[in-house]
Write a protein that binds this DNA or RNA. Structure first.
Lengths: 339, 339
DNA sequence: CTGAAAGCGCTTACAG
DNA sequence: CTGAAAGCGCTTACAG
């Protein structure tokens, strides 16, 4: 390993000088600079980050945290997009990205994660903080580690998609088309805050239109395609008169669509199906899925920018991203049953 | 920040003693141990990793490297599954995961990545090393950094799916069904080694069955659903007699399926379409997609286990994972055209 | 403009 | 069984 000392020796100067030349401190002759750079070049010197971290406290690492709530976290398109955005921003700043997926329980995140936070290894953390039982950022805030939340936990610095609005939009859309018998595929309340917000959005659209939200049938899935299929089948068996089904994420909606077709329904003629997320596949399903776009890639990008601002002493403003209804062919007016 | 020194002071012992107690060195009285542990407890001491790294050279970080070749790397299901497997293994070993997505060009991976390798920050690296122009692991090997390749670059320690076999299997399947007019949706040769291997597999199945592989029409996509649709449309316009299309990944096959349907083909009656990867959506397309399962999640898991073996001084054997043909409903016998 | 020295927090021979 | 001391590789006041 080439160290500062070796470079210094070769260049015939002190290690302090090498260090200063490399960190672009002013005050040294062009001659010294050249000697040093030549030695650095010849020796292929690369600073040891642990050494630097120990003396400066800066590691140039930020952590990206996804609480581990269900098996397949990385298959969630939201997670992918956040990852993509965070990666892009952090590497553009010359920072490295540490990925952490702590287990969370009502008593808090796991010890490994807690230790990581205090280890001095990371300068800050961006976390998807949407699990109602526990906030993975609470410990970071206690320890005054710069952190930005993507999600609903109360946090000074956060970015979140307006799930309430998205919920309203998708329900409004169905109501406008004339639907009243609407089944809902959701997810267990304690699993995810965004989903609860979407539910609230659905509710307020109903209320605004004089529909009793609580009378609409619901089934709980687990975000997966499979669960969407199962829920759809239960919904349609118990309530054959449903004219529309809302899946609170696209994957469940897609599963529902397949199942409904197997059960003999034509989409959208017999049954409208709408989703939420606007994942790439939503565009390519048969028929293409009406859904809500929540600008997921922006979430990660913005959160990371906020984090760097914070690390540099700024006070970034929190952000709420608007959602947009994406009209495709899986939704239409209900057929008139009694004519 | 609580340091060893503070703990030592509180426990009334030397910092050396605290350090030894914590690292489970033998030789100290139960009484000392208790005093130390109590102080650790009370102060909430967590070792500073930079300090430890500097004196031991162990950082408890491994890097996972995905060369950045096309925009949407994290949307590739293969990447997701590798990530999942690597994450699971490394966190089970108490290691943290650093994600790196270097830009690669014919002259090699980018400087940031090169610096990371030499920074002393990482104990080893697992890399998806399938881009023909450049191996991201070549620099790691030069620098004697423990590394495991997922892919085809020649590397002492590697794990790879048997793409050649997979290619054979999918082509064999179509040939057995009676197809001879087969269109292929592939990807530019210099983009990905796995794909070239699959192509070779297709070729050998053809050769074994007396079919001239080079006469089969091909189109180049870019892994995306969209590109699959575009390629299928070109293929079907130029060669309307095709009875089957192979997509060299599922997403392109899925795009092809949608486009073929729009062009009036019924799948599989008028046209068989098969894919490669067995992504979750393959099961839920209409009709469900015949494809090749390559045990992607295992790739990451095995590679990481090999890396830890290597770090601990072992010499793990390289692994080639077999593929499996997954029969679904998107493939069938071709219709007899001239009866 | 340059360098000697202290210090970041830890571990590890080496004495005792 | 315990501790003093050196050292890991770097940066940063402080002198000169």
């Amino acid at each position: 390993m080439t160290t500062l000392a070796k470079v210094a020796k070769r260049a015939g100067v002190s290690i302090a000088t090498v260090s200063k030349v490399l960190s672009n401190t002013p005050y040294f002759t062009e001659e010294t600079r050249q000697k040093v750079m030549l030695a650095v070049e010849e020796l292929g010197y690369v600073p040891n980050l642990a050494g630097r971290a120990l003396s400066t406290g800066k590691t140039h690492i930020i952590a990206l945290v996804f609480p581990y709530v269900y098996d397949t976290i990385f298959t969630d398109p939201l997670v992918q997009h956040i990852l993509e955005g965070v990666e892009a921003e952090s590497s553009s700043q010359g920072y490295n990205l540490l990925l952490s997926t702590p287990q969370v329980s009502p008593s808090g995140p796991d010890d490994n994660y807690l230790r990581l936070l205090q280890s001095g290894y990371i300068e800050g953390v961006v976390a998807l903080d949407n699990v109602p039982t526990t906030s993975v950022l609470a410990p970071a805030r206690e320890k005054k580690i710069p952190s930005v939340a993507i999600g609903y936990w109360e946090h000074e610095f956060s970015v979140v998609s307006n799930d309430h609005l998205g919920g309203e939009q998708i329900m409004e859309h169905l109501i406008e088309l004339g639907h009243r018998d609407i089944g809902i595929i959701t997810v267990a309340e304690d699993l995810n805050y965004s989903i609860s917000q979407r539910m609230e959005g659905l509710r307020s659209a109903c209320t605004a239109n004089g529909i009793d939200f609580d009378s609409l049938p619901q089934q709980e899935g687990d975000f997966s395609i499979e669960s969407g299929a199962t829920c759809a089948s239960k919904l349609l068996e118990q309530f054959p008169d449903l004219t529309a089904i809302i899946g609170l994420n696209d994957r469940m909606a897609l599963g529902a669509m397949q199942k409904a077709r197997q059960m003999g329904r034509t989409i959208p003629d017999d049954l409208s199906i709408v989703g939420y997320d606007d994942i790439p596949n939503a565009q390519y399903s048969v028929p293409p899925l009406t859904t809500i776009n929540q600008q997921a890639p922006e979430l990660g990008r913005i959160a990371t920018r906020m984090l760097f601002d914070l690390i540099n002493g700024g006070q970034p403003a929190s952000v709420i991203l608007p959602t947009e209804l994406i009209l495709r062919e899986s939704s239409a007016q209900p057929k008139l049953r009694y004519q």
